[in-house]
Amino acid sequence: MTFDRYVALGDSFTEGVGDPDPTRPHGVRGWADRVAEVLEHPGFGYANLAIRGRKLRPILAEQIEPALALRPDLVTIHAGANDVLRPRVDLDGLVADYDVAIGRLVAGGAHVVMFTAPDPGPAAVLRTLRGRFALFNELVREVADRRGATVVDLWRMRDYRDPRLWDVDRMHLSAAGHQRMAIAVLDALEVAHELQPLPLTEREPLPTADQVRAHLVWAREHAAPWVGRRLRGTSSGDGLSPRWPTLTR
């Protein structure tokens, strides 16, 4: 496939958090930038409207209209994972709104790529939410089937159980994880490319005591601030604007 106008929508997953690059807006690169670099050709334009921390309905409210105004022929959208993590969520109502938005993007002439959420089974803290994630993902697959969208099924990508594909916060993809995701998106679109997985450094298993200390450091430096923002009703994306708000090379 050849695309001329690519718009990426969503939350931190699409923004590129976990893949640092100080030369780019917000200091990150991410899989969507990597996909755009492969798709680029004379006349090609790329916009990334994703904002970290956004839940599904704010993504739809803030990003769908600007995306449609750019008349894209390709849209990638990742949304919903931040909602599934909340104590209470109406998955059926949430995905019904998602379905309407995907329909609008398709009607506007875009080929849409959607994503399932990862399987939280390997993560002890999130394992109790595995059933909720599974239900959300099945609803996403139904929307994709109904709207003719492409699905990148992260739930079934078992290599993402490797912690080296995740950032130190255990919530966002690492640079290697973003590269792997770019490959998955291009493969799902059947776009020829030469991207290769980034090399992964071998890690020696930690002694039990060191594992406990590492979990405590993670809880203090990453989990506690995340919970604090939830309690205060704030977001890591408050005050941020889209990285690439208009179509650019």
Rank of each mutant, 00 (worst) to 15 (best):
R146G: 14
L94F: 04
F136L: 11
K55G: 12
G148L: 11
I51V: 15
R146L: 13
P122K: 04
I64M: 04
D153M: 07
V75W: 07
F136Y: 14
R147M: 11
R164L: 10
T116Q: 01
G45P: 00
N137I: 08
R130P: 03
A47L: 09
D145I: 08
L165T: 00
N48F: 06
T76W: 08
P66K: 02
R57Y: 10
A149G: 09
P72L: 08
R164G: 10
V106W: 10
L91D: 05
V140L: 06
A124T: 10
R54I: 00
T116I: 03
V100A: 13
R104A: 15
R156F: 03
A124L: 13
R161V: 11
L165I: 00
E138F: 02
G45H: 00
L56R: 01
H78A: 15
P163G: 01
R164S: 13
L105W: 12
L60I: 15
P120V: 01
M157Y: 03
R141K: 15
R156G: 14
D145N: 07
D83H: 05
A47N: 08
P118V: 09
F136G: 00
R141V: 15
P118Y: 08
A134W: 05
R104T: 12
R104I: 12
G131H: 07
V100T: 13
A69Q: 10
H78E: 13
E138D: 15
R57D: 15
R146K: 13
L129R: 13
V84T: 10
L135Q: 14
A107Y: 01
G108H: 06
G53K: 04
A61F: 00
N48M: 06
A144E: 11
V125N: 01
R88S: 15
L70I: 08
R130V: 13
I51S: 04
V113A: 03
H78N: 13
D90Y: 09
L91K: 04
R54D: 12
D90V: 11
D83Y: 05
R130S: 12
I59N: 03
D159L: 13
K55F: 09
I51N: 05
I64L: 11
A47M: 09
D97V: 04
D169F: 11
V95M: 12
Q63W: 09
I102G: 12
I51M: 05
G131N: 09
A149C: 10
L135E: 15
I64S: 02
D99Q: 02
R88V: 15
G148Y: 09
M157H: 09
A149F: 08
V168T: 14
R104W: 12
A81W: 00
W155V: 05
D99F: 00
G93C: 01
R164Q: 14
N82E: 06
A81S: 13
L85E: 12
L56K: 03
R170S: 02
R127Y: 06
D169Q: 09
L60M: 04
P118S: 09
D159T: 12
R104N: 11
D169H: 09
M114F: 00
V143K: 07
L129D: 07
V140C: 04
G121V: 04
V95Q: 11
D97Q: 14
L105D: 12
E142Q: 14
G109M: 02
A134R: 13
D92N: 09
P87Q: 03
A81G: 12
A96F: 03
V89P: 05
V151H: 07
L56Y: 02
P122F: 06
P66S: 04
V140R: 01
